[in-house]
Design a protein around this nucleic acid. Structure first.
Length: 418
DNA sequence: TTCTGTCAAGCGATC
DNA sequence: GATCGCTTGACAGAA
């Protein structure tokens, strides 16, 4: 079973994706952005392999406007070599990738131009995965689309349009239940008509389901039956609601105890779990560690090295508690570790704590800083205390100092990414 | 350097 | 008929 995350990676400069505006971009802008995004993808794959993350969704925006008629660059020709190199890396590390076009890709629209765009977009996604050399177990996940006040007709249009797709594209497609329109039963009905596998999104299911005596686990089994040999292991999407937002918004982080309650009730069902959560790779590692029978202490320590100044800035008391916790090297305590971290991160910003953390971070560069830089730091801290500068400004200054001195340990600290 | 409006695109809900 | 939320980060231009 693999646990993974979607598209974006938190905690490094090298993995940042770039974007551009179609109206103002030159062909060379496209080349620059595509180069940067593929470099970022390479880094993310490397990171995932290093951290035993075997499931990953690749951003549709890796090639910006990849399916747009105005796209001025023949990306398949120009970046074919780079892509096949990344594909090699993916295969060697045994990572399963996927892609997920957004809400604008609507196969069952009543407007022919929208359908044509959707088909072009699916071709783009398939071409991207083909260029990586990934087989059909690396999927493209789509929603069914709109309802147009007549769901049976809308589903029928979906099935008809699907028949006209290239076989290579169709072989990658997976349909997902959504949070407002199409339930998992609808998706399974379409699966029966088309042979497409169904990815079960448990959060969407909670928000949008018909009366039924079946449990989520029953639905996972039903959906698993739609996955054939060429599709690979069944996948599910897992997320938790954002308590601060309404509706279908995803949580900032995965609550590990709640995740484990879900995970344990899977009872060894062999499915891949895609997490949809704002803190991305951080929650993926959290869940992977939490489900390990005997998590190596070094993995927990490596995560702590990245969190520590972020936690210190929120609460020195919790920082100390975690340090004590990690002294027990024989028996790593994953769940208390993350419970403390989540507690710290949920706390309100406290200027005293933040000043303390900033001074700790400053300690890495204070010896080599010029008198002018030292003065600048002190002025900035004072301004932060009296409210005329933001915490972001303080962290921005410290990050520039870390970069200037090339202190890798510091540059990778999550202190700078929140 | 930091802040704010904007960005290719569709659909459905709300007024 | 017009506007907004979905979900999202980064660009572009202004302060």
């Amino acid at each position: 079973m693999a646990i993974g995350y979607a598209c974006v990676h938190i905690g490094s400069e090298a993995t940042k994706l770039s974007a551009l505006k179609l109206a103002t971009a030159t062909p060379d802008d496209f080349r620059r952005v595509i180069t940067q995004n593929l470099n970022a993808l390479r880094e993310m794959i490397r990171y995932n392999a290093d951290h035993d993350i075997r499931l990953f969704r690749i951003s549709s925006d890796s090639i910006p406007f990849g399916s747009h008629p105005a796209m001025p660059v023949d990306w398949q020709a120009e970046f074919g070599e780079a892509l096949s190199g990344i594909g090699e890396q993916i295969r060697q590390s045994g990572i399963r990738v996927s892609m997920h076009p957004g809400q604008y890709t609507v196969l069952n629209s009543k407007r022919p131009a929208v359908v044509a765009n959707a088909i072009a977009d699916l071709r783009y996604h398939n071409a991207f995965l083909d260029a990586l050399g990934c087989d059909t177990t690396h999927k493209i996940i789509i929603h069914i689309g709109g309802v147009y006040a007549d769901k049976p007709q809308a589903m029928k249009r979906f099935v008809e349009t699907l028949k006209g797709l290239d076989e290579r594209v169709r072989a990658r497609l997976v349909i997902e239940n959504d949070d407002t329109l199409y339930t998992v039963e609808d998706a399974l009905f379409i699966a029966g008509q088309t042979g497409l596998p169904v990815v079960f999104d448990i959060f969407h299911h909670l928000l949008n389901h018909a009366e039924s005596s079946l449990s989520p686990y029953d639905w996972i089994d039903r959906c698993a039956e739609t996955w054939g040999k060429k599709d690979g292991k069944p996948k599910i999407h897992y997320s938790q609601p954002n308590a601060k937002a309404r509706g279908g918004a995803h949580s900032d982080t995965i609550d590990v105890q709640e995740f484990l309650r879900f995970y344990n009730q899977l009872h060894q069902r062999d499915v891949d779990i895609m997490l949809e959560v704002k803190d991305k790779n951080l929650s993926a590692i959290k869940c992977i560690l939490a489900t390990m029978e005997k998590p190596p202490i070094r993995l927990l320590e490596a995560e702590w090295a990245r969190y520590k100044y972020l936690v210190l800035g929120q609460s020195a008391a919790i920082y100390q508690k975690i340090r004590t916790l990690l002294k027990n090297k024989a028996n790593p305590q994953v769940i208390p570790f993350y419970t403390y971290i989540d507690e710290a991160l949920a706390a309100e910003e406290n200027k005293g704590e933040q000043v303390n953390a900033a001074q700790h971070v400053w300690g890495y560069v204070s010896d080599v800083a010029s008198p002018a830089e030292t003065k600048q730091f002190q002025t900035l801290l004072k301004a932060y205390r009296d409210g005329s500068r933001s915490l972001k400004a303080v962290k921005g200054f410290l990050f520039r100092m870390a970069k200037q001195q090339n202190i890798g340990y510091l540059m990778e600290s999550l202190y700078f990414y929140r």
